[in-house]
Computed example of a mutant assay.
Amino acid sequence: MQLRRATMADFDQIIAILKDGANQLAEHGVNQWQGDYPSKGQIKEDIENGWAFLAVSEDKETVGAIAIVDGPDHVYDHLDGKWLSNTDKYVVIHRVAIHSQHSGKGYATKLLQAVINDIKVNRDDIDSIRIDTHEDNKAMQHLIAKMGFTKVGLLHGVYRPNETSYVYELKK
């Protein structure tokens, strides 16, 4: 799995991947990404800040999208819990999606493993990796745990009112 930094030329493709991801969540009864998040403005900001990446498979197919956001991330200002690392030197994985045309091939695992490996090898300035997901997104919770993250707390109403997200951290 290769990570390719996205440019504005990739904007429509990222939107399509994330929209497909929202549809997949809805099909599984998960009420995540069913509103205006992630927004087009958020994706534009991700690209402009160098946070947006495309996941490219071994056969050179673009299979997914991900945002790797440098901290501090104010989404976590009201964490109900305790971090493993008391630091501002972290990155947050947001907006992870594998297009449904490519599901069932292990690409989500390969994508997160590529991100974790890249950060461990190339980001000496980073102490930990953080990620969160909707309380009903069991597939993502399973993947996060499989990748070695520790559940550290909850977010309440950050993305949408009355929505709870589980928050995880992986010390580098």
Score class of each variant (00 low, 15 high):
residue 102 H to D: 06
residue 3 L to H: 01
residue 106 G to K: 03
residue 79 L to S: 01
residue 99 H to D: 15
residue 72 P to T: 05
residue 129 I to A: 05
residue 58 E to S: 15
residue 163 E to R: 09
residue 142 H to M: 13
residue 12 D to W: 02
residue 66 I to N: 11
residue 1 M to V: 14
residue 55 A to E: 06
residue 62 T to A: 07
residue 166 Y to T: 00
residue 77 D to W: 00
residue 84 L to I: 00
residue 48 E to K: 06
residue 23 N to P: 01
residue 100 S to P: 07
residue 41 G to T: 04
residue 113 Q to E: 14
residue 140 M to R: 02
residue 120 K to M: 05
residue 82 K to C: 04
residue 92 V to Q: 08
residue 44 K to C: 05
residue 38 P to A: 02
residue 91 V to M: 14
residue 130 R to N: 07
residue 5 R to L: 11
residue 18 L to Q: 04
residue 142 H to E: 15
residue 24 Q to S: 13
residue 66 I to E: 13
residue 163 E to D: 12
residue 35 G to P: 01
residue 129 I to S: 04
residue 38 P to M: 02
residue 68 I to L: 14
residue 172 K to F: 02
residue 117 N to E: 12
residue 79 L to D: 01
residue 51 W to L: 02
residue 110 K to L: 14
residue 150 T to N: 07
residue 157 G to K: 12
residue 104 G to W: 08
residue 10 D to S: 10
residue 153 G to R: 13
residue 134 H to T: 01
residue 20 D to K: 03
residue 37 Y to N: 00
residue 11 F to A: 01
residue 3 L to F: 00
residue 23 N to Q: 10
residue 23 N to M: 07
residue 91 V to P: 06
residue 102 H to E: 10
residue 138 K to Q: 14
residue 84 L to A: 00
residue 120 K to Q: 15
residue 9 A to R: 05
residue 91 V to D: 08
residue 149 F to W: 06
residue 138 K to L: 14
residue 82 K to R: 14
residue 30 V to W: 10
residue 10 D to K: 11
residue 25 L to P: 05
residue 17 I to M: 07
residue 47 I to M: 05
residue 102 H to R: 09
residue 43 I to T: 04
residue 35 G to R: 02
residue 59 D to S: 15
residue 50 G to L: 07
residue 170 L to P: 04
residue 74 H to C: 03
residue 46 D to P: 08
residue 144 I to K: 10
residue 115 V to E: 04
residue 156 H to D: 14
residue 159 Y to G: 06
residue 89 K to V: 03
residue 76 Y to L: 04
residue 100 S to I: 09
residue 78 H to D: 11
residue 101 Q to D: 14
residue 146 K to M: 03
residue 56 V to C: 12
residue 91 V to N: 06
residue 7 T to Y: 01
residue 93 I to M: 15
residue 46 D to F: 09
residue 76 Y to R: 01
residue 164 T to A: 15
residue 122 N to W: 10
residue 117 N to D: 14
residue 73 D to S: 11
residue 27 E to D: 13
residue 25 L to K: 05
residue 52 A to I: 05
residue 110 K to C: 09
residue 133 T to C: 14
residue 147 M to I: 13
residue 108 A to D: 08
residue 20 D to R: 12
residue 51 W to I: 02
residue 166 Y to G: 00
residue 87 T to V: 08
residue 101 Q to N: 14
residue 109 T to V: 12
residue 163 E to T: 09
residue 68 I to N: 09
residue 76 Y to P: 01
residue 83 W to I: 00
residue 119 I to H: 08
residue 74 H to M: 06
residue 29 G to N: 14
residue 25 L to A: 10
residue 17 I to G: 03
residue 9 A to I: 01
residue 133 T to V: 04
residue 125 D to S: 09
residue 89 K to L: 09
residue 150 T to A: 07
residue 80 D to P: 00
residue 76 Y to I: 01
